[in-house]
């Protein structure tokens, strides 16, 4: 087998090896101009549906599904995307962010959206004791998963200086958790 090879993140990365800057730019624009169609195709594949099956569910022809999956972003209608995604049992969410939003700001944006969702879950559960318990459980689970994910990320980023946290809440702790427990701060080294 060939000796250790360069691993490319994607085709744009790979193409840099073969083309000059001008051709690279043109190619990247070409690839980017079909991201919606590519995403739809990936979603259909994940759902395990053939074009024919999706067409029947969406009330479209197979030819139309194929056209959608190869369309440029500019040529897709919101109506077609809605029909396609609905046939896969998916909801379409449309959001707006500043052009060229820096990755660091994307992280912050997602963080605030996450907190909003968690707050909304708590609000919706108010007044129903059972729902309140479930909502509280979910918040602890979410915190557990998020913190573990972040710690894993930090370990990759700074493995030498990472120390294990003093306390991690696990889901088995949640059943004995009361409202008063929720007010307790979890401390880390």
């Amino acid at each position: 087998m060939d000796s250790k090879k360069t691993a490319y993140r994607g085709v744009k990365d790979l193409f840099k090896e073969y083309a000059n800057k001008e051709e690279q730019k043109e190619f990247e624009q070409f690839i980017d101009s079909q991201q919606i169609a590519k995403t739809l195709f990936a979603l259909r594949s994940k759902a395990g549906k053939t074009q024919k099956e999706l067409a029947e569910k969406a009330g479209m022809t197979q030819s139309k599904i194929s056209k959608i999956e190869h369309a440029f972003n500019d040529d897709l209608s919101v109506g077609d995307i809605l029909k396609y995604s609905s046939a896969l049992g998916l909801q379409l969410h449309i959001g707006f962010t500043p052009e060229n939003l820096a990755l660091v700001n994307q992280v912050k944006l997602h963080w605030f959206q996450l907190l909003e969702c968690l707050d909304e879950i708590q609000k919706l559960s108010e007044g129903d004791k059972e729902m309140e318990t479930e909502a509280r459980k979910f918040s602890f689970e979410a915190a557990n998963n998020i913190l573990n994910g972040l710690l894993e990320h930090l370990t990759k980023v700074h493995p030498e200086n990472m120390q294990k946290p003093a306390l991690l809440v696990t889901t088995s702790d949640i059943e004995s958790t009361t409202k008063e427990d929720c007010d307790t701060n979890i401390a880390f080294n």
Partner: peptide
Amino acid sequence: LNNLDTYLKALQF
């Protein structure tokens, strides 16, 4: 390469 990119995207999903 464009079709390769589409295939790769499905794998990433």
